[in-house]
Design a binder for these strands. Sequence first.
DNA 1: ATGTAGACTCATGTCGACA
DNA 2: ATGTCGACATGAGTCTACA
Lengths: 77, 77
Amino acid sequence: MEPEVAFGKVLRALRKQAGLSQERLALDADIQRNYVSLLERGLNSVSIKVLFKLAAPLKTSPSEMLEQTEQLRKRHR
Amino acid sequence: MEPEVAFGKVLRALRKQAGLSQERLALDADIQRNYVSLLERGLNSVSIKVLFKLAAPLKTSPSEMLEQTEQLRKRHR
DNA sequence: ATGTAGACTCATGTCGACA
DNA sequence: ATGTCGACATGAGTCTACA
C-alpha cells in the first residue's frame, strides 16, 4: 500500500474524529477544499508544508499523522 | 522557522548519525544525490513519497523524522 | 564528498464551476 | 457536504556537468 493512500485514510479518519467537514478543514488549514478531497483519496503525495498546515486544525501533530500512516501500512501488508 | 528548514537540519543530522554520505544515501533511497543537498539546505519541501524512501536507509521512520523536526522548531521559536 | 547551475518533466496545489 | 473537471502556476524531483 502506497504511503499516499494510507495517508489519505488516516487524514479522513482524523478529520472525522475532529468533527470537521472537508470545507472547514480546508479553511482552517488554508488550503483548497477539493485538495483535501484529493489527499483523502490518495491521489496526491502531500508535501511536508501542507502536512504541517493540516496538523493543527486536526488537533494532532505531523509526526502522529505519519505514525498512524505507518501503522496502517503495516496492518495492510 | 519553516518546516523545510527544520527538516533539512534533521535530515543532515540523521544522515551523519547513520554514517552515510549524501551520495550513499541518495543511492540507497533511490533519489538524486544533489536533491539530498537541496533538502538538507531546506530549499525544497519534501513529499511524503520521498520521506518514506529516506527513512529506511537512515534506519529510522518517517514519523520519527518529523517528530525531531517538530522538536527542533519548538526549540527554535 | 558537497554546492550549485541550467534545462527539463511532471506532480503538486490553486481556482472556478457543476453535478 | 463531497467528487470531479479543466485550466492554470508553481514547485518537486531528475539528469548532466562543473567548481
